[in-house]
Nucleic acid binder design. Sequence first.
DNA 1: GAACTTTAAGACCGATCGGTCGTTCAGGTA
DNA 2: TACCTGAACGACCGATCGGTCTTAAAGTTC
Lengths: 213, 213
Amino acid sequence: MTDTSEDGRRVRGRRSREAILEQAVSLASVHGLDGLTLGRLATAVGVSKSGFFAHWRDKEQLQLDAIEWAARQWVDEIVRPAFKTPPGVGRVIALHEARLRFYAAEVLPGGCFFFAAQVEFDDRPGPVRERVAKALADWLGLIERVVKEAVDLGELVPDADPAQLAYEIDALGESAITQVRLLGGDAVYDRARRAVRDRLRALTTDPALLPED
Amino acid sequence: MTDTSEDGRRVRGRRSREAILEQAVSLASVHGLDGLTLGRLATAVGVSKSGFFAHWRDKEQLQLDAIEWAARQWVDEIVRPAFKTPPGVGRVIALHEARLRFYAAEVLPGGCFFFAAQVEFDDRPGPVRERVAKALADWLGLIERVVKEAVDLGELVPDADPAQLAYEIDALGESAITQVRLLGGDAVYDRARRAVRDRLRALTTDPALLPED
DNA sequence: GAACTTTAAGACCGATCGGTCGTTCAGGTA
DNA sequence: TACCTGAACGACCGATCGGTCTTAAAGTTC
């Protein structure tokens, strides 16, 4: 019996498992990974609380799988679309703006799953924290690589520091979601967009590579 | 009997009230304003749970007062020291770096009280949310005014956009605390510092106003 | 159809949540 | 002394927390 068999029981199980995970990520983006209680999740999905334990050993396992699910979503909705833009400055901008579009589209009711998870677990040791840290490191590493590509292609000046720029681009994108949710106003997204464009404009070898305001 | 009387009972009450608030801000910086449970707080302060209700009607009132306390701390530890630097670009930098010093000094065990509160309450309606939103708006407004001062003094080019810069400076400072806590490494603070210096250097009328790297 | 596996439900557990109650005690007033 | 006020306590409340146990039902294998 292989993993790819079509055992009707396992198919059913996998479906409800995925339905639960999707709801879990949504709920966690609002209430946080800790505020994501089994009771809330159960009623939201329409499943009995004890039914969870057929799929996950305990809440922590559920949290870890929810992170995995959210990471996949992040790649699908942000990284992959942005990578349709060819390497270079354009791809750096595409990555940043794909993130802003993801926020603006309100894919998750709470705005940003990872942001909530980072703030929540940055000082609580354990596997969840480690997984969240890895997600952040991966994301920063990804930006850094895309920036480095642009440098290697000669589209950014050679002494542009990819790690430094990765920090700045992430920071300028991250703040948008909190400010939008707390203070409202579309101006925030414009500022986040403009900030990165201005920053890159100062470092690009050919201003024509950048879109106008 | 005036408010300034020295009724020993009220003096005692005020002292324990302040001791509780201080602990509350510390705990909330770690566990969040919601994870700040009365039981945890009680044992941390060494007070019985029910004793709280002599001072606060309910948990929400305690949360609101904790925010007030944290706001005062923010002013005392960051704004006031930075304002010793005279108006201009120097004060803009002083404000940003005072914040980073506040983080680096680990004044609060959880890093940043307001950051945690913002992420937690950005989508939960109620007075706590409104108070947190006000705190953010005040902080952004403060940066904006300090930037505007620098423009008016001619230290920044006239078309520098204070609101835009306020967004960027806040974002570049905010990200530091999460990254430091989650990934560690002092390089993060250096990046946050350098980011703002570079940004201002591009807009200043006199490079001598800015410190070297 | 019997044996077995997987998903899911219901009843229930001890712990903890925010909060109320009546009481005690220290400090101040008459 | 008698009385009053404010701070703080222990006991207790219903609700909910994460989690366990037993059982039923659906699907697969022989």
